[in-house]
Design a protein around this nucleic acid. Structure first.
Lengths: 242, 242
DNA sequence: GCAAAAGTGTTGTGTATACACCCATGG
DNA sequence: CCATGGGTGTATACACAACACTTTTGC
């Protein structure tokens, strides 16, 4: 019945015609990032503090991949690149100002130690206290959390929440914080060692009055990377597409 | 350093200034669907036949979810709703006519028997012969294939490629076609029966000169549904967001 | 020598794989 | 009676969960 051409034509009419439905007939494309970190046994999400708390967001630029645009958001928040980023989902919504918006959401991870924070610094809100967020932000953040937890089961993304070197106990604590349940020490260590993703440094960390812990490093080369994400994620800039 | 407001401002400059990079400063949002079916032992993708073969596409409408818009694409191709649909990925690219486009891609599944095909009917191309597609379409289709194969392993989506009743051999053949490798009959049957997603009808299908096959039905109520897809996929229309 | 965290093995249970023959029917 | 696809069971390897004690250090 309807061909591509038909549809493009009817859209063109919309563009020039009056904005119906109190939403303009051409959408704004808006990126939002759910930036996680783990600190003091809590999973935190970075928010911008304006009139109200909002997920950090940005508009894409022509000739730039969406993934770069998402990374720019993180940079503007922290003055540091994230350690992991992944696209989540895209949805169409009408925002508070009745603007038709296409929201492309991302999840990002970073280690909490010495994150410098740009100005203004982000507000770090515990992931289970998102009640104050605006509806769309709330949905996006909730979904990011679901996905993060699910991915702990079959990927190694949790490493990206830790600094360059870390102890196995720190790693386990990160898992437990995100999942909010305790894990068995021996089983955890066995699995993570067997996965081959750890590089044992010769160093030890001596903390308090107890046995020092071995320090490990994340083997980026043994990381399958961004798992059910397309191979070309982040690669399609103007050059590539031409 | 840079706040949301800053970024919106600098973007506003772009909008009113000259379109740099030969791409307009406001993107077109374009949905594309990779519609799969299995027929005669081949995995096929539906394409529109214009000047060249293209993935079926569409533009979203304000106040409508992207998922509805994607479903509209399928309807316009087949005059039937799909049996399964899922969002894949969103990317930014500059198309052949140098228009800056945000491409939101979807994967959809349908049974091949008695699909009526709208006019003009789609061209069904084998999934391993996508060489003739335009770059973006090609990437999208390739990724859809990766995701479909991956999901066979941990979901039941393959059912959505079959008609309402089917034999276990038909189901197995669908899996084998998509994975392009043979599966063990006994193990396959054991697993699929154990999963509890099959409803055994009392009917049998008598084909040729051999034992008749039991017919099964898909238990939609036992299907976890759209798996790593957000719960609100397709729900966020104008009403919901307000 | 004691408090405090690091580190280490075994056993059972369930899940996935490999593999070969009999069954029901039509012609 | 034979050709054709439908249907069934067992043995083995591997992954995962449960569970408790010894080691090294600082004070």
């Amino acid at each position: 019945m309807t061909t591509v051409q038909d549809q493009r034509d009817s859209r063109a009419k919309h563009e020039t015609g009056p904005a119906s439905l109190s939403a303009a007939a051409v959408p704004v494309v808006d990126l939002r990032v759910v930036l996680f970190t783990v600190a003091e046994g809590e999973l935190l999400i970075a928010l911008r503090d304006g009139h109200e708390l909002r997920l950090p967001s940005n508009l894409p630029l022509p000739g730039q991949s969406l993934d770069s645009a998402a990374r720019r958001i993180v940079l503007s928040m922290l003055r540091r690149p994230e350690q992991y980023i992944e696209q989540l989902y895209t949805l169409s919504a009408v925002d508070l100002r009745e603007r038709w918006t296409i929201v492309v959401s991302y999840m990002a991870l970073i280690a909490s130690n010495d994150v410098p924070s740009g100005s203004p610094p982000p507000i770090w809100l515990p992931a289970h206290e998102l009640g104050s967020l605006e509806v769309i932000d709330r949905m996006v953040a909730d979904y990011a959390l679901v996905r993060l937890r699910a991915k702990l089961g079959y990927t190694n993304i949790a490493f990206h929440l830790l600094p360059e070197t870390f102890t196995l106990t720190e790693l386990q604590t990160a898992y437990e914080t995100i999942l909010s349940r305790p894990l068995d020490k021996r089983n955890f260590r066995r699995r993570v060692i067997a996965s081959g993703i750890l590089l044992e440094t010769k160093q030890k960390r001596r903390d308090g009055s107890h046995r020092p812990a071995a320090l490990y490093r994340f083997r980026a080369d043994h990381d399958p990377g961004t798992y059910l994400t397309p191979p070309w994620a982040g690669v399609v800039d103007a050059e590539t597409a031409a």
